[in-house]
């Protein structure tokens, strides 16, 4: 395996991107999960799909788009979607979750139109839907790295504000923090992470890499920093095991990564139960 990675550029791209995504998706995921925004991540990934499908369609019909990496339009539509979700959440104050199906169906609907308009990119599309080991380009890797730097900077700079906002939004507002601005930035960064993760895990499974490692981590962590640490550890494990299996068995990495995450989650729940039972006996 190591030899192959050293030998093939495409494997280097996939593994390096995967390792970066294995950090940023669960890192941001901790904030997304504790703020109960997991479904929003799902909605945003479908909007990203609309951008990708749109770009793939345009690449066939408009020469300017022929060489454009579809990830760019994906990023644009994800960020646009995140801003729209916020608008809708404010519009439907008492039914905030309504924003999710609205944005999700808008994303899927547009994707369906673009996909049926275009002819013959099913292989490409498959790699965007479920991830790919072979389709990650060097350019994709640079984009993922750029997004990762933004995510780290954002969380490093606003860690304490994000913590307060996640733990107790009313308190954050009452203490005069710029809650709205930080929240909007947070949504935009979430959109970026989804666009970045999509190349490896696929659009349909992006939200699982954001939520599953956190779901496992919450079971055993003490405190918030530890929750982040374990989430990244589990995310990284899932990505590496998932990519290796996908490579050897020629499977879509989205599937293997998610199934590995689920196995980790089940294992953590089981171990926790056993430990609790032993402690209860003592």
């Amino acid at each position: 395996m190591i030899e192959s990675i050293l030998q093939y550029d495409f494997l280097q791209n996939a593994f390096l991107s995967g390792i970066i995504i294995g950090i940023i998706a669960p890192l941001l995921g901790v904030f997304i999960v504790v703020r109960r925004l997991s479904l929003i991540a799902d909605a945003l990934s479908h909007v990203t799909l609309a951008g990708i499908a749109g770009s793939l369609y345009l690449s066939q019909s408009v020469t300017a788009f022929a060489t454009l990496n579809p990830i760019y339009l994906g990023i644009v539509s994800a960020v646009g979607g995140s801003v729209l979700i916020e608008r809708l959440r404010r519009l439907y104050k008492h039914f905030e979750e309504l924003a999710i199906p609205i944005i999700m169906s808008a994303g899927l609907g547009m994707s369906a139109i673009f996909i049926s308009l275009a002819q013959g990119f099913s292989a490409d599309l498959f790699s965007y839907l479920f991830g790919s080991v072979s389709a990650v380009s060097r350019q994709d890797l640079w984009i993922v790295l750029g997004i990762a730097i933004l995510v780290f900077a954002f969380i490093f700079i606003f860690y304490k504000e994000l913590f307060v906002l996640s733990f107790d939004e009313d308190y954050a507002k009452a203490s005069g923090l710029p809650a709205k601005t930080i929240h909007l930035l947070f949504m935009v960064v979430t959109a970026l992470v989804i666009a970045a993760s999509m190349r490896i895990v696929g659009i349909l499974l992006v939200s699982s890499l954001i939520t599953l490692p956190v779901a496992a981590s919450i079971r055993i962590a003490k405190g918030f920093k530890q929750t982040i640490f374990f989430a990244i550890l589990f995310g990284e494990l899932a990505v590496i095991i998932g990519l290796v299996t996908a490579f050897y068995l020629n499977l879509a990495p989205g599937g293997t990564i998610v199934v590995t995450s689920i196995l980790i989650l089940l294992l953590v729940i089981m171990i926790k139960k056993i430990v609790m039972a032993i402690r209860a006996k003592d």
Partner: peptide, 16 residues
């Protein structure tokens, strides 16, 4: 269910 220690919660009072 928020995963934070008492210390982390108290420290969050210093944010502003």
């Amino acid at each position: 269910g928020f995963p934070a220690t008492v210390k982390e919660v108290v420290a969050s009072g210093l944010t502003k």
